[in-house]
Amino acid sequence: MSLVIHNLHARVVGGQEILRGLNLEIQKGRVHAIMGPNGSGKSTLSKVISGHPDYEVTAGEVLLDGVNILGLEPDARARAGLFLAFQYPVEIPGVSNANFIRAALQARLGEGEELDAVDYYGDLYKEMDKLEIPRAFTARSVNEGFSGGEKKRNEVLQMAMLKPSYAILDETDSGLDIDALKIVAAGVNAQRGPGIGMLVITHYQRLLDYITPDVVHVLVGGRIVHTAGPELAYELEAKGYDWIREELAESASA
């Protein structure tokens, strides 16, 4: 059981190719990290997998437990078990967090099935407590007027409630101070387990101090160019990305 990305080529509709033959397999039960310099295609990857309409796939496939999801609408991909924690979560004025998460869960039920309200609030409060989110949060509009930390905690809360089989966390550390980062990381770690495969996208090694990955990949120029254990993150932090680019250049000319 895995999320397999095979020879993926993609671009902004009508634009230059950004992903150029990307290969990656995310196994359930493991946490993969992708690091890469600015402009390497990290955020594009998360958007292409989840089906953002601004991007088009020109070649390749994305198999979720063996099923190619590239022809599916974003909502069908989500219901199939894919979750994206957004780098910039979107505000939805007038829609309360409680109603939003409830609607998302309801969308996963069959025709005529109703979510049990008591169970729902029980689960919601339990997950909110883990993330140190106060109860008043349920009545606030989704992400409206939220601080950076609150937005990211909300993403992790939604992930906990929707229980995806594969989750992509796009720059979840951006905009967080160290205390908020610890809370968010603890929330993510609590969800680790055999039922979920995670892909943590980050520019900095800092996040990986708190969410220790099983595997680290380096993305440069729209391809995975290097894969190693968690120690790779420290190496990148210490040496930057230039040495990888140099290695690439050498191997290309050799």
Partner: peptide
């Protein structure tokens, strides 16, 4: 906005459900 709809679709709501939720939020 398209971003709003995409965000909601990523949570599993169909495009129509996402629109409904936005509109209901607007008049809430």
């Amino acid at each position: 906005s398209a971003e709003q709809i995409f965000y909601m679709q990523q949570r599993g709501l169909t495009e129509a459900q996402a629109m409904s939720l936005s509109v209901n939020g607007f008049v809430n």
